[in-house]
């Protein structure tokens, strides 16, 4: 063995952080976000109004909070399609408690507890019984919302106490809503968990190679279970905000959110097959989707047309880099 360690010393990094940041997915998202912002500002005089911008944040804050936890779950190689149904069930439970005369703190606690329990149910099915999460959560997606339908049918819960309204309608300072503050806080918390802790590292290891992670002493099932719990908890929190904002609960509440949330996560650069992705990416994707929705709204473009744009964006942002790589490879092949 060589004693000449210094000669073979391997550098920690070849490229600096700045260099890598320039080439990253997040940079692309920042450019898109700026473009969307400029286009919006140019096409509608109402866009730059602070109150309008503040209103626009409600388009994404609740979904984004779930998306942070979903991002970690997808990085670990699993998925939860039942999130919107958890929102519905948690909201229904809160409505039920409200009718029974409980106060606001209890309602909030109910929402969060139902969220965590639903997450635990998914987590047990996936980690204990070893079932594929995509199928399990398609099942619980029907089950959770189904329970809401059984409870509510075609009726609705109305008349939440006025103190409950703060979570979805309250403002902390000037145009800064409580939800927006919550969004920022959770963005920071999840960014720290995923990028700065041992737990986050384990999530990446599991997503890249679950067997290898297990062979490296990581308690894979436990980590995944916690991720399902977190996703349930975030859905519960989103349920509190959304119910408070709408002031009512119908079983169709948050219908179709799961697909929007997954789109947000994937657009944010999280690999749907697991192993890579960042929270800042998801934050940017949330901002882009929120601004696009808002901008189109100002132009009186119907929501359904916006969804075409989001769908195209989802496919394009994934396809274009791949097509680019393929074209480069083909060119290199011709030269050789």
């Amino acid at each position: 063995m060589s004693n000449d360690f210094t000669a073979r010393n391997i550098p920690d990094r070849l490229t600096s952080r700045d260099q890598r940041a320039l080439k990253s997915w997040e940079t692309l998202l920042v450019i898109i976000a700026v473009m969307v912002f400029v286009i919006n500002a140019l096409s509608s005089p109402y866009f730059l109004n602070p109150w309008n911008l503040s209103d626009a944040t409600f388009n994404f804050t609740e979904k984004a909070m779930i998306a942070f936890a979903m991002a970690m779950l997808i990085v670990s190689g699993e998925i939860d399609l039942s999130v919107a149904s958890i929102v519905a069930l948690a909201s229904t439970a809160m409505g039920f408690m409200m009718q029974a005369g409980f106060d606001t703190p209890t309602l909030v606690l109910t929402g969060l507890t139902v969220g965590v329990l639903c997450g635990a149910f998914n987590g047990v099915l996936v980690t204990r019984l070893g079932l594929p999460s995509i199928v399990v959560t398609i099942g619980t997606m029907s089950l959770f919302r189904g329970i809401s339908y059984i409870v509510l049918g075609d009726t609705a819960y109305n008349g939440y106490p006025s103190s409950f309204a703060f979570f979805g309608q309250g403002y902390v300072w000037w145009v800064i809503s409580f939800e927006l503050v919550l969004f920022v806080i959770f963005a920071l918390i999840y960014a720290v968990i995923l990028h700065k802790t041992n737990f986050g590292r384990a999530v990446y290891a599991i997503g890249n190679n679950p067997i290898g992670a297990k062979f490296s002493g990581i308690r894979v099932e436990r980590v995944k279970f916690i991720l399902f719990l977190l996703t349930g908890l975030m859905s519960g929190i989103a349920a509190v905000c959304l119910t408070s904002r709408l002031g009512s609960t119908r079983p169709s509440i948050a219908f179709g959110w799961e697909l929007e949330i997954v789109t947000m996560v994937v657009l944010g650069g999280v690999n749907i097959l697991g192993g890579s992705g960042t929270i800042p990416g998801v934050v940017l994707a949330a901002l882009i989707m929120g601004m696009v929705t808002f901008g189109f709204g100002l132009l009186n473009v119907p929501g359904i047309v916006m969804s075409i744009f989001i769908g195209l964006l989802l496919i394009a942002v994934i396809a274009l880099p791949r097509l680019w790589t393929m074209a480069n490879a083909a060119r290199a092949g011709r030269k050789a």
Binding site: R201, A205, I211, G212, A213, I218, G275, S276
Partner: peptide
């Protein structure tokens, strides 16, 4: 499959356990 966590950098593979 069981040894290397392909997708993670060298140093993170070393420090994982």
């Amino acid at each position: 499959k069981q040894g290397a966590i392909i997708g993670l950098p060298i140093f993170q593979n070393v420090t994982l356990p």
